[in-house]
Write a protein that binds this DNA or RNA. Structure first.
Lengths: 345, 345
DNA sequence: GTTAGCACTCGAATAGTTGGAGTGCTAATA
DNA sequence: TATTAGCACTCCAACTATTCGAGTGCTAAC
C-alpha cells in the first residue's frame, strides 16, 4: 500500500475533522478555505480523487462531498492513539465517595461519562474469576434461618439465606465458621475441588448440608458475577446523531443496549484483544470491526481497567463513527485511572 | 352527562376493539359489517356523530374514520375492571427460584412481563419505609476492617465495610454485636431516635465510633432503598407501535424510561392513589391522566403489590393507548399474586 | 504542478396530480 | 319515527414532475 503524501494526509485529516463537527459530507471548496492549505478546489479535488481510490474516503453519492471510510477513521484514530501521551482532562463532578458498593460507583461512572461525552456508555463490573475468598461468616437470624455472608477480594460481598431444618447452637455455628474460614480463605473458585469439598463435609459431620449450601453460595456468588453485570447509560444520545437515528437503526441499537447480551459478546471480545498488549488499554472498533451487527454504523472506544488480582472490567463508549475520538479517549483514560485508584486508595 | 344507549355503547366498544387491533381509524363501513350490528353505514354514522359530540371518539382529520378519545378508552377500561373476576392466565416461564436477592426476581419479572405483553414494563423494588431491623452482625474481616451486615424485614440485606483505627478483640466484637442486636432488633428507622442513640453510645464506651458507623449503615440502607430502585425492560417495544415511534416521541419516551427520575414520580403518584381503596390494586392512567409528559400518548397500567409490614412496590406496563388492556391486567394480577406469595411461600 | 472554467450529475425540496376512504346532509322508504 | 340510499364534498397519502444548488470530473490554459 502506497504511503500518503503529507498533503494527502493533511487533507484527509481535515476532511475527517470537518465531518466530525458537521456530520455533512465535505466538499473541495470547504477544504480549500482552510488556512494551511493554499490550493484551489480543483487541486484538492485531484487529491481527493486519489484518496478515494486508495479507500480512505467515500462519496455517498455522485454529487456530494466526501466522508471518511472506516479505513479513513482508522487512519485518524491510529494517529490519535500514537500521540496519546497528552495531558489528561479531569472528569468533572465524579464524586467517588468510598462506597463499598462497587455497583453504585459503576452506575455513577457510566452516567457521568454519558453526560460528559454525549454518547452511549457502558461499563462492565469487574469479573472476579480469579478472585479469592476473603472471608466467610454464618450468622443465625432465627431458629430456621442462617445468613451466610461471603466476601471476595475486591470487597465484593454476597449474602444468602439458608433454611435450617433444626436450629444450630451458638457453639455449632462457631465451629462451622471456623471450619469454613480455615478451609476456604484465600482460595479461588478453581481451588475448591471435589477433594476439598468431601474433606470439609466429613469434618462437618451432621452439618454437611450446611457446608453444601455455603459452597453453593460461593459458587452462586461467582457465577452471578461471572454473568457479567453491565451497566449502561445515555443510549438515547444516539438520537442526537441524524445518521443513526432513523427508526430502524435506533431500535436495533437501543435494543442491543438494553438487552445487553450482545454487549457481553463485545466485552468478551475486547478483553480478549486487550489480553496481550500492555499499552494504554484503549481499544477502538470502527464500524464493521465491531462484533455487534447493530453497531456497524458506530464506533466503539473502550478502556480496560484492572483492580489487581487479575480482576478487570471494561468501560466504553459507543457513538457515531464521527465521534470526538480525542475527547473520548481522554475521558476513558481518566476514568480508568480513577477506578484503579479506588481500590488502592 | 347523558347515558349511552346500548347500541351506542356497542358501537363504541367495536370502534375501540377494532382500533386496538389495527391501529387504524375505524370507519362506518367497517363497523356495519360486524355481525351483531345490522345497520347500514349511514345509521352508524349518525351514532358516531353523537359519540363524537359526547367526547368518546375523535376524528383525526375530516375524512378519516374515528379513533377513541381518552374518555373513550376510560369507558372501555372501566368496563374491563368491572368484570375483572375473570380466570387468571398463568404467567409462563417465570421461574421464581427462591433467591433471596429480590433484585434478581424483580429483574426477571419485568423481563418476562415485557416479553409476554410486548410493551414497556417497570417494577419498583419494595419500599422499606416501615421496615424493621431484623438482625445486625459485625464481623472482623482483618485488623483494619469490620464488615457490618444489616438485615431488614423482607429479607433485605445490606453490607458496609467499616474502617478501624485499632483492631477489636473477639470479645469486644461479641459485646458490640449483643448491644446492637438487643438495642435495634425490631425497630423501624423512625424508632431510632436521639435518646436511643446516645444511650447506646454510652453503653459502648470507647467504641462509640463504631456504633455511630453501624447506625449510619442502617440509615444508609434505608435511604438507599428509599431512593426507590426501579427496574425496566422492553422500552424498545414502543417501536412496534407506529403511532409512538417517530423519532422525537421515541426519544423522549426512552429517555424517561432510562433516566427513571420521572418513573419515580409516576410510582409515587400511583402508590398515593392506591392508598385508600382495597380492590384489585390495579390502576390505569390514560394519556394525560399520567403525570409524565412524555407519556401523554400512552397508557399506563399498574398493580401495587404488598409484602406485608407495609412494604409495597409497584409493577406496571406502559404502552400505546390502544393496548390490550385485558391481557395486561391479567398479567399484572397474576404477577402481583406471585410476588406476594414469594415472601409468604 | 496548479488553476479556471464548464458541462454534468444527483439528491433534497417543492409543488402539482390523482385516487380512495370516509364523511355529512338530504330525501326517500318502511 | 327510525333507517337507509345517494351524492357532493373533504382530506390525506402516494405518486410524479420540476427546480435548485452543491459538488464533481474533465479539459485547457497558466
Amino acid at each position: 500500500m502506497e504511503e500518503l503524501t503529507e498533503r494527502k494526509s493533511k487533507i484527509l485529516n481535515i476532511i475527517i475533522q470537518n465531518y466530525l463537527e458537521t456530520g455533512e459530507p465535505v466538499g473541495s471548496r470547504t477544504i480549500s478555505k482552510y488556512p494551511d492549505l493554499n490550493f484551489s478546489p480543483a487541486t484538492i479535488r485531484n487529491e481527493m480523487a486519489d484518496l478515494e481510490e486508495m479507500g480512505y474516503i467515500i462519496q455517498p453519492h455522485a454529487s456530494a462531498g466526501r466522508i471518511p471510510s472506516d479505513k479513513g477513521y482508522r487512519f485518524y484514530v491510529d494517529g490519535l492513539i500514537a500521540e496519546k501521551d497528552r495531558e489528561i482532562t479531569e472528569i468533572k463532578d465524579v464524586m467517588f465517595e468510598r462506597t463499598e458498593r462497587m455497583e453504585q460507583v459503576l452506575k455513577q461512572v457510566v452516567k457521568v461519562l454519558a453526560n460528559n461525552t454525549q454518547y452511549a456508555t457502558m461499563i462492565s463490573a469487574p469479573a472476579i474469576s480469579g478472585t479469592k475468598v476473603k472471608f466467610v461468616q454464618l450468622s443465625p437470624v432465627n431458629e430456621h434461618q442462617l445468613l451466610s455472608v461471603v466476601m471476595m477480594s475486591g470487597n465484593i460481598v454476597k449474602n444468602k439465606l439458608i433454611e435450617l431444618d433444626n436450629p444450630l447452637t451458638a457453639e455449632e455455628t462457631l465451629k462451622l465458621n471456623m471450619l469454613l474460614n480455615s478451609s476456604l480463605n484465600g482460595l479461588t473458585i478453581g481451588d475448591i475441588n471435589l477433594a476439598l469439598i468431601s474433606q470439609m463435609k466429613s469434618q462437618a459431620g451432621e452439618f454437611e448440608d450446611i457446608i453444601e449450601q455455603v459452597l453453593k453460595t460461593v459458587a452462586d456468588t461467582i457465577e452471578d458475577e461471572e454473568g457479567l453485570e453491565i451497566y449502561t447509560s445515555g443510549a438515547t444520545n444516539i438520537f442526537k446523531y441524524p445518521e443513526l437515528s432513523d427508526s430502524q437503526r435506533a431500535k436495533n441499537f437501543i435494543e442491543a443496549f438494553e438487552e445487553k447480551e450482545e454487549l457481553k459478546d463485545l466485552i468478551a471480545d475486547i478483553e480478549g484483544a486487550a489480553e496481550g498488549e500492555p499499552g494504554t488499554g484503549i481499544q477502538v472498533y470502527i464500524g464493521d470491526e465491531s462484533p455487534i451487527g447493530s453497531m456497524k454504523d458506530c464506533s466503539v472506544v473502550t478502556a480496560t481497567y484492572e483492580l489487581g488480582d487479575g480482576i478487570k472490567g471494561t468501560v466504553g463508549i459507543i457513538g457515531p463513527k464521527r465521534m470526538d475520538y480525542k475527547n473520548v479517549m481522554d475521558n476513558l483514560t481518566s476514568i480508568k485511572k480513577k477506578l484503579e485508584q479506588i481500590v488502592k486508595g
